[in-house]
Design a protein around this nucleic acid. Structure first.
Lengths: 345, 345
DNA sequence: TTCAAAATTGCAACCGATTGTGTAATTTAT
DNA sequence: ATAAATTACACAATCGGTTGCAATTTTGAA
């Protein structure tokens, strides 16, 4: 495999009867090399099809121009948007991306972190798995002062920055909206609340209830894996409740959609019988009938912000420990699925 | 940035009073190193937190254990599924992923190819941009015998393998299905037919018409960028047709959905007035009302197959030039959006 | 013409790991 | 007990590029 001669700066040097040093400097536009020589080097390099060896350079410079990304899943609308955003921002600055998915397993997450470390990524962007209990598997990075930025699914750590939305506030707004629509019995479908995003959304949900003097009921919280199928499952649980709840606030859209479809099949009317609010503003929210009220939360932007911050740390513009948390805007988008009162909002 | 001592095999060697050679071999489980020594090395390496330097190794071995991926967009359901599949297969075999998106621009595609080449990826997995005219920007790879595998959006080349579905056949089946449902005037919404996928789907569409003695009409083909918005635009064009078409075959689901939603808003009934078939089996097909008939086309599997083949080339199991094309299964999934005749199929 | 200052370029060590070849130590066979 | 065969480890070169410092050449003013 992979034969055919590799063109190196030594080959160029030999052909030009100069030293590899000069070639190296010429290629980097170093000021101590004369214009004529630079031109000769550049021309021959082009002609010979020279391509710099990233590894040799990384080895010497201790800098790889590569950013590692670890996410729970690659194939969700939100995550792929984030990654697209990261890719754009990183590419602009000449960084490459090394990507791995943890598949929601903290074990795989740790393994990926090791691989990334071995690959000497300059920095790491991470969204944690459902069950990651602590940040022990990133300690190598912290020790070596390699910046690690967490986004969306985060965890507090003195040496790293978190980028996310105000999940508590967003959930508060979502729940309040349902209450304002006349709902009193509101079910919350979410994931295990170990992860900040779900814990905070639950908190916001509770706070809204409390503010409107509605008693929180443990059995109104349904814990799932938030898949569409899980939403259909949750529908069964909901159908057994007597009386039926008047509203459902789901911690993501696909789960909300799964639940809505299952309920509709059983003849439940949405929003008349049960109003729905989701989370994420996935494309599917504008397709389902009725369109789903949700929290808009632009993944692409989060990705860009995360990448830009990481790169600004790397170029020494700012330091990781100086920024603790970055909160991005989120917004409640009201659609038909939650409008019990015509003309409201 | 990134200070703190780096632990190398030399540090381990010094502490153990042996040579770096022995440490290196011990870590690789080389047979000429005694069990005792290996144990000592492994223990100390663990204790000192030694992590192999990927670059030094790559530089020496001329092998990076990294696969490059270039796709038009990361944030589509299909592509992120493919990538998830690639990630799984690659990770199993100890390969890392370097990922870039071309944003449908052949210029960015070429730039990414250069970066990948500089990073000395062991192989490349590519899905081409809309407008890529030829494979010139991959010539470096071909010259050096670095395997390049194209998937989905492919182009013929003697030195590379293509992995895709039989788009012509799938489109033929989709169109025939519409015809069997009683449609005669069938609109085809697609993208510029420079790319194989769209060219072949158009061909299948034409063949089905021809087989049923339906005259092909140029004005029944609508060229778009296949976004959901483009689907809504296409709906306007369709509404101007007199008489209205009886069926629409769209080259992807999101475009079909955009079109359906826009038509429904104008009071068109689906499938009674116009039947719909999409392509891809995106999650949204099971959400829209009525559920969308489509071609199922498992991205995850394509990713796995592509990665496994690439890796088998890399490990010398097979050679690129021996396999030309791999066709994966696709399947027409009939749902309510196309069922004009009750009880059919 | 002369010599120091400025402009160019080269030498050689280094980044961390791998490996062909050689040598010393130990074991086996006779 | 001694030659022969293993076993266990080390030397030194190598992968391709970078960089501090020395060396050489050019320039220019005296």
């Amino acid at each position: 495999m992979a034969n055919a001669k590799e063109v190196t700066i030594y080959d160029i040097a030999k052909r030009l009867n100069i030293s590899a040093t000069t070639v190296s400097r010429g290629l980097q536009d170093h000021p101590t090399i004369s214009g004529k020589t630079k031109k000769k080097i550049a021309d021959l390099a082009e002609q010979m099809g020279y391509r710099s060896n990233h590894f040799a350079r990384s080895l010497r410079n201790q800098k790889t121009n590569t950013i590692g990304i670890i996410v729970p899943r690659l194939n969700s609308h939100f995550m792929s948007s984030v990654i697209a955003g990261i890719e754009e921002a990183a590419n602009e600055q000449g960084y490459s991306l090394l990507i791995a998915q943890s598949s929601e397993s903290s074990v795989k997450e740790a393994a990926s972190a090791r691989t990334m470390f071995d690959s000497r990524v300059d920095g790491l962007l991470v969204s944690l798995a459902f069950d990651t209990p602590d940040l022990g598997h990133f300690s190598h990075f912290f020790k070596k002062d390699i910046p690690v930025i967490f986004f969306d699914r985060v965890m507090e750590h003195e040496n790293s920055t978190n980028i996310l939305i105000d999940n508590r506030q967003a959930a508060f707004n979502a729940t309040r909206h349902l209450i304002e629509q006349g709902c009193r019995r509101i079910v919350h479908i979410t994931a295990p609340t170990l992860r900040n995003v779900y814990k905070d959304r639950l908190k916001g949900y509770k706070e809204a209830l409390s503010q409107y003097k509605i008693k929180f009921r443990e059995d109104h919280v349904i814990i799932t894996d938030l898949s569409q199928e899980a939403g259909a499952e949750a529908a069964k649980t909901i159908l057994k409740m007597k009386p039926l709840p008047e509203g459902v606030f789901a911690a993501n859209d696909s789960c909300a959609v799964g639940c809505m479809l299952a309920l509709k099949e059983r003849g439940i009317r949405i929003p008349e019988d049960i109003a729905f609010v989701g989370f994420n503003n996935d494309p599917v929210t504008g397709v389902i009938d009725p369109h789903l009220t949700t929290i808009s939360y632009r993944g692409y932007e989060i990705g860009q912000v995360a990448a830009r911050h990481l790169i600004s740390y790397l170029s020494g513009t700012s330091h990781v420990s100086s920024t603790n948390t970055i909160i991005l805007r989120s917004e409640l988008i009201v659609r038909a699925s939650s409008l019990k009162k015509a003309g409201n909002k």
